[in-house]
Amino acid sequence: MTKNVKQQAGEAKHPLEDLVRMDRIPHIWCSGCGIGSVFSSCLTAIKNTGIDYSKFAMVSGIGCSGRGAGYINIDSFHTTHGRAIPFATGIKMANPDINVIVFSGDGDLFAIGGNHFIHAARRNMDITVICVNNMIYGMTGGQVAATTPYLARSATTEAGNPESPFNLPLLAYAAGATYIARWTMLHTRDLADAIVAAIHRKGFSFIEVLSPCPINYGRRNKEKSIDTLKNYHDKTIIKNGADPVTLDIDYGKGVILGKFVDIDKPTHDEKYRKIYLREKE
C-alpha cells in the first residue's frame, strides 16, 4: 500500500512530492498556463481525503490537461482522445473500491467525448470528473472548442466564433450528475475542498475549473494571463446552489462559481450489484 502521509514535518520536500512523478518533471505546460495550478489542487485534495493512494486511479484523455495522468504518482492512465470516461467506467464497474478521477480538458470531455460524459452522468457512474476549461484546443494550437465564447477568435475562427458554447454545469445537471461545482484555478482552496467533497460524494461528480491558456487563447483574444486572472477575481460571484440555467460564462454580467448540486442517489455499481449480484446496498 502506498501510504497517505498527511504531515511530513521537518522534511524539506514539497508537501505534494509523494504524489508527483518527480522523475517526469519538468512538465510540458507553458508558463502562465493554469493547468498546473488545477493539478496541484487536485493532488492536495487527494492528500486531504486521507484515503490510501493505492485506492485511487486517474484517467485522462488527450490534450494539455490530458497530460495530468502522466505526472501523478498513482495508477494513472493516459488514454485516447475523448475516451477517459468510458475507461474510468471500466475501472469503476470492475473494481468499485477504487476512487476514479478523470482529469481532462474541455475539448476532450465535451466535444469528442461529450457522448460519454452525458451517459456516465445519466448512469450515475461513481467517478469524479475534473474539467480544466480553457475554452480552446491548446495542444493543437488554439482551434475553436465547444466551450469557446461566441465571437472569440481562434485558429479556426479568425473573424470570431459563430457558435455558442456549452453551459457545462447545466449540461451535467440535465444529464443527472449528483455533484456539480465550478471554480477557477485562482480559487485553489475552494477547488481543493470541492474535489475532496466530490471524491467523497458517491455518484457522478463534475467540477468545471476555469483556467487560462495564455498561449493559444489569450494571445489571439488580446487577453493577458493577468487579465484573465483579474476576471477570475473581480468578475466572479460565488453563489452556492445557483440555478444551473444561470451559469453561462459571461464576464459582462459576472460568472457564477460555487457548488450547484450535491445530492444522494444510488450509483450505477450499487444498483447493478443490488439487482444482478444481489448484494446489499
Partner: peptide
C-alpha cells in the same frame, strides 16, 4: 475503451 479499464483491474 471500457474493457481496457476493466482489464487493468485484473
Amino acid at each position: 475503451t471500457c474493457i481496457l479499464g476493466s482489464a487493468w483491474t485484473g
